[in-house]
C-alpha cells in the first residue's frame, strides 16, 4: 500500500509538474463560485426562508392554497393537489362549512340541526374511511394526499352553502327551495367529479367503481345536510 501511495504521489507530482509553468492569459476568468449552475434552481431558493419577511411566507402559503382551490374549480388531470399536500385548505373549508351550518340555529337549543362538532366529525371521519377503503382496495396513494384531495373538494359544497344562505335570506318559498336544490345538486356533482378526477388514477382500473361509491356517499351526505339546512323562520 505504502508503495502504491508513494507511487501515486510521485505520479501526481510528475503529472502536475508540467503545469507549474503554464501561464494563463488575463482575459480568461479563473475565479468564481464553486457551485454547479444547474443545482441552484428554485429548490434552494425555497429552502432559504429564514431571512425573508413574514408577509412573504404567509403569502406564499396562501397562494399555494388558492392555487389548489383553482384546481378544484377547474378539475384537470393535474398532480398539483397530490404532489404537495397540505391540510390548511381542508381545515378552512371544513370550519367555514360547519360554522355556516351551525349559525342558523344557534339560538334555539332543541332542534335537530347539524351541530358544529357533527359536521366536523362527518367530514374528517368520512375522509379517513374513504382513504382507508381506497388503501384496502389496493390504491397507490398516501394517506394525507387522499385527505388533502377530499378536503379540498368540499369547496363546491361550501360555495353551495353560501348560496343557500343568501337565497334563504331573500325568501322561504318553494321557488327558493328549487333554486337551492339545483345549486346543491350541481355542486354535489362537481365535488364528486373533481375528487374522482384526482383520485381515480391511483386505483386499479377494474375497481374504480368500488372506490368511487364511498366518495359519492360522503359528498351526498354533506350536500344533503346543506340542502336541508333551514334558518329558523
Amino acid at each position: 500500500m505504502a508503495e502504491t501511495e508513494g507511487f501515486g504521489d510521485s505520479g501526481s507530482k510528475q503529472l502536475f509538474a508540467g503545469l507549474s509553468n503554464v501561464s494563463i492569459s488575463g482575459d480568461i476568468p479563473v475565479e468564481g463560485e464553486i457551485t454547479v449552475p444547474m443545482a441552484s434552481t428554485s429548490q434552494e431558493d425555497d429552502l432559504s426562508t429564514l431571512d425573508e419577511p413574514v408577509k412573504d411566507t404567509i403569502m406564499r402559503d396562501l397562494k399555494a392554497v388558492g392555487n389548489k382551490f383553482l384546481h378544484v374549480m377547474y378539475p384537470k388531470k393535474s398532480t398539483t393537489l397530490l404532489r404537495d399536500w397540505d391540510l390548511w385548505g381542508p381545515l378552512v373549508l371544513c370550519v367555514s362549512l360547519a360554522l355556516m351550518l351551525q349559525g342558523g340555529n344557534a339560538d334555539s337549543k332543541d332542534d335537530g340541526g347539524p351541530q358544529f362538532a357533527e359536521v366536523f366529525v362527518i367530514i374528517w371521519f368520512g375522509a379517513v374511511v374513504i382513504t382507508l377503503n381506497s388503501k384496502l382496495l389496493g390504491g397507490t396513494i398516501s394517506f394525507f394526499q387522499s385527505l388533502c384531495v377530499l378536503g379540498y373538494c368540499i369547496l363546491p359544497l361550501t360555495v353551495a352553502m353560501l348560496v343557500c344562505r343568501l337565497v334563504l335570506l331573500l325568501s322561504h318559498t318553494t321557488a327558493s327551495f328549487i333554486v337551492r336544490l339545483v345549486v346543491v345538486t350541481v355542486m354535489f356533482a362537481w365535488s364528486t367529479f373533481a375528487s374522482t378526477a384526482f383520485l381515480a388514477d391511483s386505483q386499479p382500473p377494474n375497481r374504480r367503481a368500488l372506490a368511487v361509491y364511498p366518495i359519492f356517499l360522503f359528498y351526498f351526505v354533506i350536500s344533503w345536510m346543506v340542502l336541508t339546512f333551514n334558518t329558523v323562520s
Binding site: 332543541d110 332542534d111 335537530g112 351541530q115 362538532a117 357533527e118 366529525v121 362527518i122 356517499l217 351526498f220 351526505v221 344533503w224 336541508t228
Partner: peptide, 21 residues
C-alpha cells in the same frame, strides 16, 4: 348510517345525550 341520519333528520328526532351521527 346515511339513511338512518336522513330518517332521524326528517322525523325531527332529538337525542338528548349524544349526536345523531
Amino acid at each position: 348510517v346515511a339513511i338512518l341520519l336522513h330518517g332521524m333528520k326528517s322525523s325531527g328526532t332529538i337525542i338528548r345525550e349524544g349526536t345523531l351521527m
